[in-house]
Design a protein around this nucleic acid. Sequence first.
DNA 1: GACAAGTTGAACAGGCGTGTTCGAGTTGTG
DNA 2: CACAACTCGAACACGCCTGTTCAACTTGTC
Lengths: 202, 202
Amino acid sequence: MSRPAVKPARRADAQHNAEKILEAAVTCLSRNPDASVSDIAHAAGVGRVTLYGHFPSRADLIEAALARLLGQGDEVLERLDLTGDPREALRVLIESSWLLIAQASAVLEAAQAVLPPGRLHDLHAKPEQRVGDLIGRGQAEGAFRRDLPASWLAGVMHHIIKGAAADVADGRLDRTDAPRFIAETVLGACRPVDEERGPAGH
Amino acid sequence: MSRPAVKPARRADAQHNAEKILEAAVTCLSRNPDASVSDIAHAAGVGRVTLYGHFPSRADLIEAALARLLGQGDEVLERLDLTGDPREALRVLIESSWLLIAQASAVLEAAQAVLPPGRLHDLHAKPEQRVGDLIGRGQAEGAFRRDLPASWLAGVMHHIIKGAAADVADGRLDRTDAPRFIAETVLGACRPVDEERGPAGH
DNA sequence: GACAAGTTGAACAGGCGTGTTCGAGTTGTG
DNA sequence: CACAACTCGAACACGCCTGTTCAACTTGTC
């Protein structure tokens, strides 16, 4: 290999700016999925033209931000041990990545408006799968209720996380309370129901 | 009273069109909170100018649509008997008005962008109160868990309903399954936790 | 049937967001 | 130091949305 890699020799400064822009995009789009390019550039402390220098279009920027976020999420989930008690595993999962999930959901919503649906599915299929698998295992082991599909329960978790993040953003919920509330509620929703609640358990 | 009422003698035709517009606004804004006036007018089978003839501005239209929706909701809740077992009452409430709540939430989201925050609170304070009271009573009677605030549980219900509506709209959930899934999940989330799960019940 | 009420499309002005170009200035890097 | 990489603001064209006016047309109502 004469060339060790495709190295356009990007200046360190530029690299740093690109990072700042992506971070700003995540925070802005989390607050408002319709945030304009000007907003994001301003939040990143960067001129609008500079932003376009790094990302050809708003759609590309959103896709990059989403990919970065999902990458981080996958990384976090990767080093988590989800093989123990499903209840405990789900609690750990929620408490360690609820914020990431909330941000990803928000950016995903923004992406939905500008990216082809197929492209979206490809990006967040992997992390989605991980959650689905965990809940499915919990059902199989009897730790979670079986009268509702795992996909529905996974969706419920997402909706609650998203809602909690919105509550935090609007000041209706304390940020430090959020993870406990979410985990407690989701686990409650997944708990099995004892149909026969008479004195004689089978 | 010489004049029986302030009767501008609106033509029956116009009245009917105004209704069509409001209905179209609800369906359009439910699908996309950023729906344009053109979209709504077209969905109502009406010219854009006609719409402006009925509602001075987009904001007024949204406010009218929201008010109509909340009025319907309040009406439904009014004739419901919510005094019995809180669990049963909550199930009845959900199954009879989940769609209305979902639509109202969507329109409310649209309204959030164009209406002053105070005006919003006034409009949906009453129905909100009803749900909060029911959950609070359930907690007091020991039917619902007390380790989470009633306002949080009410919010969770909203988030799940909203999410379920989105799932239905996107084809991820069968419309006929929705009410059962929602009620079952919300009731599960509200169920009290038995901290001491040893063999010796109290 | 006659008249007013209502509807309609075309066309306009103003605002906002997206991408693009340009020229000048700044700063990292060899 | 010197050059290329990078940044920046101004300004432009384009498209979409809002709200308004106007002149013709249709339709309800008395």
